[in-house]
Structure formats: structure tokens, C-alpha cells
Design a protein around this nucleic acid. Structure first.
Lengths: 187, 187
DNA sequence: TTTGACATGTAAGCCGTTACATGATTTA
DNA sequence: TAAATCATGTAACGGCTTACATGTCAAA
């Protein structure tokens, strides 16, 4: 029971546990499903699959195909399922404060020109609005499907965060742009 | 003008630009100020300060002290200020989708026992509530200080996110815990 | 004819974390 | 006497990303 595997290994293990897949397929599935809150490159997928096999947490079988190249089909083993379960049950989920580069820029906002600061807020708002609309559509699509409850919940989380971000932009824009104004005639 | 320095270098540069500091002091200041959305270890601070010096973006002077060890005081150079400004103005702020391990666990929630899932939500709610209260106090403290507008804005962002997270927990808890119930007598 | 889906990897390299290492001074 | 503040780093290591490398088949 190595509790010391990197997070990505457990994530890959979890994705394989949904259904047996190939590296190619898993990378695409990851992007579609957990892509909003966990990034995973194809390269990394392949190396993690390899490691998990060597550890006996996954089994692999080569499958010949007529029209496509031979593929390697991975499936979870008993040990793998156990390792996944114990990771999921591990209460030691620590802080994991995550970096937010947008906020870093806002923090240093007094070093930007007002025009540039406004552009920063505008582009953030635009990107966030797009994200919100995308997630709203996803929630719409998944709602009502009882088998997609957990997936829907993660989309709802993203939706709530995006909406809160947009509300925040509306709230702070006047404060931030007003704060920069050194010219009394403008204020 | 290397636009290719790691993000951490620019963050350190930005923090030094606030006022000349030592590595020790800067690490503490980083924790206090941007710690909520950017992590920075002491080790890393020292190595980045060193690099920025070698690149001519910072100047260092050794200062002897009576009661304390000699310290190295760093301050930003003209080139450094220029590099910082051009990084802040760089519109190519890309997606930077950040990992959220809590959401990963929720995504795999159907692999947990209902009791464990509930415990996960409870501990998340508790941690988030603590975070919200902390940030609310910070916002309270910074509000009204005109020189702290940008810093207050970042705290308000965290506060808005935390509140949205709490609302989300209330919203999805019944869905997630109800979804697991396979026993008709329990539902 | 070119794009896209299918399919699998290797190699290089920096970034960032954790652990290690040291030592004086003040305060509880 | 123990802990906290002040002060500076080195060493090791793995994680993760980027770029490189290859090839078939179907559809536009």
C-alpha cells in the first residue's frame, strides 16, 4: 500500500476504474470530464499507465485491430481498486492553496496603467463569462441523469465559482479603477 | 527582456518592488499578502533572489547588524522594473486551469461509502467556513484604507469564492447523499 | 490533398517541494 | 530551558510540461 504515489497516478487509476480504456482514449476522456479542474497531458497519461502496470495496480492487454493500430487496453486490478479506495478515503486532504495568476496581477494593479488594468478586468470577465456559459450548458445536459450526479456536482461547482467571479468583477471594477485616479478633475 | 522567466521570478520581483527587503522578510510578507493564492517556499525565495541578481533585475547590498546576523538587502533595478511592467502588461495570460483535488474526490464520489462522502463534504465545509471568516475579517480590516484597495480586492475575491463554495455544498449535499441510496427503504 | 481521428510513446528539462544544515538573540 | 525571531542557504528529487517522433485510415 504505497500511499505515496503522486496525485496524478490516483487520478489515472480512477479514470481507468470507470471503464477499461487505452491511453489515447483516457486522455480524451480526462479532458472532457475532469478537465475543468485537473490537467493531464497525453505524455503524462502514458507514463503513469506504465508505472501503474509495473506496480500491479493495472493490467494491460494488447488488442489487435483491423483498421487501426494495435492498442493497449488497461483495466484496474484488485490491488488497484484497493489503492484507489484508500486514497479516496484518506482524510488527510491538506490545504492545497492553488495559485491564481490573475489575482497576482490584480495585487500588483497599482503598477499598471488604468487602461491596462481595465483591459485585464475586461478580458477576465469575458473569459469567465464564456466559462460560465459552458458550464451552465453542461449542468443543463447532465441534470436529470441520475447516473451523472457526481459529475454534475463538479460542473455546478465550477458554475457557482464562475458566477461569483463575475459578481466580484462588477463589485470591484469601480473601486479599482477609481482608486488609480490621481487627477482630481477625473474623480 | 526575457519574457521567459518562471512566474515565481516575476512574483518575487513584484514583492521586492513594494519595498527593499531581505529573503527572510520577503518570505514572511509573501505568506501574509499573496499567500492565499500563491505559494512560495523560503528555499525558493532565496534561489529566485539569487537568479534575479545575476540577471541584473535586482541589486543586493550586505547590511551588518549589531544584534542579528548580516542580512542581504535586495532592491529592484531599472531593468527589473521594466521586466515587471512588461510581464504585468502581457496580455497572454492563458487559461491556467488549476487543479482542485477536492473536486476530483467528488467526481469519484460513487466509489466512496455514503458515510465517507458525507465526512468529505463536512470537512470541506468546515475548512471553507474558516477560510471565509478569515477573509471576511481581512476585508473588514482593509476596507477604508485607500492604499490597500488592490489587496482588499484579492481578499474580496477569496471571500466571494468561499461563500459560493458554501452555498454549493448546501445545494448539492442532498443530491449527492441521496444519489448513493440504492436501498428503496432508505430513499 | 490536407485535415482529423486513431494510436503510442521518448527525451529533455525546469519548476517547485521537502529535507537538511547552522547559529545568535530574545522572550516566556 | 525551551521556543520563537532573525538570518541564509544547499541538496536532492520527482512532477509535470514541451517538444520531438511515427504511422494508418477516412473524410472533406
Amino acid at each position: 500500500m504505497p500511499g505515496t504515489l503522486p496525485v496524478t497516478a490516483y487520478v489515472v487509476l480512477g479514470l481507468v476504474s470507470v471503464r477499461p480504456t487505452t491511453g489515447h482514449d483516457l486522455a480524451a476522456f480526462a479532458e472532457r470530464s475532469i478537465g475543468q479542474f485537473f490537467s493531464l497531458t497525453r505524455s503524462h497519461v502514458y507514463s503513469e499507465l506504465d508505472r501503474l502496470c509495473r506496480l500491479g495496480l493495472l493490467d494491460v492487454t494488447e488488442v489487435q485491430q483491423e483498421r487501426f493500430p494495435t492498442k493497449r487496453l488497461y483495466e484496474i486490478t484488485g490491488d488497484g481498486a484497493e489503492a484507489l479506495a484508500s486514497w479516496l478515503d484518506d482524510s488527510a486532504l491538506r490545504g492545497e492553496r492553488q495559485r491564481n495568476l490573475f489575482l497576482v496581477r490584480v495585487f500588483f494593479g497599482d503598477r499598471m496603467s488604468p487602461a491596462r488594468l481595465e483591459a485585464l478586468l475586461d478580458s477576465y470577465e469575458q473569459a469567465t463569462r464564456a466559462r460560465r456559459d459552458l458550464l451552465a450548458a453542461t449542468v443543463e445536459r447532465l441534470s436529470g441523469r441520475p447516473q451523472s450526479t457526481f459529475r454534475a456536482a463538479t460542473a455546478m461547482f465550477g458554475l457557482a465559482q464562475a458566477q461569483a467571479s463575475l459578481d466580484w468583477v462588477d463589485q470591484v471594477r469601480p473601486l479599482l479603477l477609481g482608486a488609480r485616479c490621481a487627477d482630481p478633475d477625473q474623480c
